[in-house]
Write a protein that binds this DNA or RNA. Structure first.
Lengths: 144, 144
DNA sequence: TTGCGTGCAAAGGTTTTGCATGGCA
DNA sequence: TGCCATGCAAAACCTTTGCACGCAA
């Protein structure tokens, strides 16, 4: 709420961010982060994890979206806050992998939809769901 | 589970379907349906609402997706079960309106992503979030 | 009569909040 | 020292499940 709030650097904040950065190619749930940190012997309370994730989302450091199957939140690290302006996000429903795609075709589509259909696409909120090549080859159940 | 299950027609099922049909241009949550039916003096238990919604989703009658902001499920009536094969879904984060879009450009994009990027887009799971023209004009807060 | 449908109550899983304590600057 | 951050426990939320009864065919 208060934009002028000071922000302290803490062990927990760094641990959470590290975990997200090391898994930047996948999306993580809050539970996965809690478990991962516990396994490393650096446990962080789940309340703290949730609070930090929410703050990072607000700061544009993370992408937050709903899991393809269930309804809980997934989080993923973004290289830079402006990241989402330059590319789009594909999520494989088979393996959970997140693919960053900078593709002129998508940008053209965004422009087309805005001009011809009067709809302003939000590339930050829009997630493209589908199936990556290897999951398709494996015939992943969730990909059918 | 059992595909050969008989299906009975009941008062509750019709009421739920009616509610969804009357709001086909918007997405509804389970709670909204429960409340709406209660307000009309035709209350239906929430368990029943959830069970019927899930069945209709499985039958391809409804589109189910996560709310843009929150984490609860939204449901929306589809004109015909094959509907989603022919077009894509845009959801306005301002007014909740769902727009069905049959657009060759999107189909081209789907083909392009599959051929050039090896990713099989799922047009049923993918929802395009953004802001419709009137919400953009009004400067809807959630659209910024 | 058969067996699917309903709804209350309770359980389940995820996320948020209250509050006292801890720790950064 | 002043405030923000943490974490336990509890609450809040949304959704699913168990079970007995209701009702369509």
């Amino acid at each position: 709420m208060n934009e002028n709030r000071k922000s302290y650097s803490t062990r927990q904040k760094d641990l959470i961010l590290n975990c997200l950065r090391e898994n930047r190619q996948r999306h993580l749930t809050a539970e996965m982060i809690v478990d991962d940190l516990k396994d490393r012997g650096e446990p962080v309370g789940q309340t703290t994890v949730y609070r930090n994730l929410e703050k990072m989302v607000k700061d544009g450091m993370l992408l937050k979206f709903a899991a393809p199957g269930g309804m809980h939140a997934c989080y993923q690290y973004l290289e830079s806050p402006e990241d989402h302006l330059n590319h789009h996000h594909l999520v494989c429903v088979g393996c959970g992998q997140l693919i960053h795609l900078s593709c002129g075709h998508i940008d053209e589509l965004t422009a087309h939809i805005q001009e011809e259909h009067g709809f302003h696409l939000d590339s930050f909120k829009t997630i493209f769901y589908g199936c990556c090549e290897s999951c398709a080859a494996k015939g992943e159940a969730r990909c059918t």
